[in-house]
Design a protein around this nucleic acid. Structure first.
Lengths: 243, 243
DNA sequence: CGTCGCCTTGAGTGTTTTCAACTTTGGTGG
DNA sequence: CCACCAAAGTTGAAAACACTCAAGGCGACG
């Protein structure tokens, strides 16, 4: 696990990190009373400030915690012997990752920052101790585990049955919805991950993703400028998914 | 949820069911002391005897339990608006399904018997009450949840990065390994599910699966006779996966 | 201002799908 | 017991989709 970045935090980053921490506490997707969130905050002992390409955890690392993204984007993936990789998911602020280590000693996948990211660690052990004190915490965690299954299953359907067009449309809508949920614009945002990562996630070649973006733009569905994306026709995007 | 089959159990089935129950207790993939397994057995209130095509649960059903397969094969799948479906997994005896309902009120997928199957129900509620009494139970359940994630992620890699040949080889080895684990021959067994189901699971057309079986047989890797499969060259099968 | 990484575009190739016909099997009723 | 039917499986040919290989453009960074 990469702790380096925590040691080389520059002052500007640290200041903004502290300020953010103070105002909005933990960035958790949990619906709990203020004081309970405080309790949760108290079990966070480690923070990670990751630069693009740095690992949060790697395959084989001891899996004894889940992680909350406070800012940035984390991708999880399976590295293969053949050198390629399968991206399993992208995690945005206020999302939790690492559930797959439940009941295992080691991670079976890796997690890497796609952009500069701020992540905090919630050890399973501390979390379990809180279950008795914080009413509803277990249910909320269970709900997140169930959602993680749902996400994986949606992905299996996407990879097993859908064409490239539908996959990319589905991906864009997913990002859009999640950003909107956090109070950002659902129609205009930055794709923080590379085309290669997107393709890797969607089971498509990098070039195919690029071509699809071009086609979507020609059809007036979106406007793509490098990493910046504007959705012009949300309905058409939705139609592509349901096709 | 389909209870019909429990009401129309014929005497022969019932007798064999009871006998089996007596001798090998619950068919659980849990490593616990005898008396604890007894306790677990006591929370089973419902049994399902399902005929091929009958549902164990359907999408939208209240998800308040996990299920242990005692005999037969259960497939889980996502039905889509377009009429097609994505098979998520096959569950053999001694395997548990239904974790995805964790923390949700409803199932987001369906479970159907592929062949005549015997399944028992473990309500989440009863299970949670046992966590305090049975030491290590939570850890074991967590381990199974983690394994479920691992399976899903392996599947994502398979669908995202592998060709038909590698997918089918991987599938056959998975079945082989799981049967061997239960004490059956890893080299000779029946494929209880249809070609359509296999294709659906592997993200391939039914015809492609058929052609691949033919090719594997021509290459001397397996012998296929309808549902009966014999693996002649386990190494070559393994090579195909690792390619 | 040059280099490197990321992205785009084109051309050709390959795998898998689709459509269609045909075979085999298992069940049902005469 | 046999004939018939529906479901499951196989096979072939053509088409679709995405991939690979290759070249070139754009932008960030030193």
């Amino acid at each position: 696990m990469n702790l380096k970045s925590s040691n080389v935090v520059n002052i500007a980053n640290l200041r903004s990190s502290l300020k953010e921490h103070k105002t909005q506490e933990l960035c958790l997707p949990l619906d709990l009373p203020e004081e309970d969130l405080h309790l949760l905050g108290s079990i966070v002992k480690k923070h990670y400030l990751l630069q693009p390409g740095e690992h949060l955890y790697n395959i084989g690392d001891p899996g004894k915690a889940i992680y909350a993204v406070r800012s940035g984007t984390i991708k999880t993936y399976i590295p293969t012997d053949q050198g390629d990789e399968q991206v399993l998911g992208f995690y945005l602020p206020r999302e939790l990752l690492g559930f797959e280590a439940l009941g295992h000693d080691q991670f079976n996948s890796a997690a890497m920052a796609v952009e500069t990211s701020d992540v905090c660690e919630l050890p399973f052990e501390s979390l379990e101790k809180l279950y008795d004190q914080v009413k509803g915490l277990r249910e909320q965690i269970d709900r997140l585990i169930g959602r993680e299954f749902y996400n994986d299953h949606t992905m299996l359907l996407l990879l097993g049955k859908r064409h490239g067009e539908e996959r990319l449309a589905s991906f864009l809508l997913s990002i859009s919805r999640r950003l909107q949920h956090r109070g950002f614009s659902p129609k205009e945002f930055n794709l923080t991950m590379s085309r290669r990562d997107i393709g890797n996630y969607l089971g498509l070649a990098e070039e195919t993703v690029s071509r699809l973006f071009t086609r979507f733009q020609e059809d007036g569905i979106v406007r793509v400028e490098r990493k910046h994306l504007t959705i012009h026709d949300m309905d058409k995007l939705q139609d592509l998914v349901e096709h």
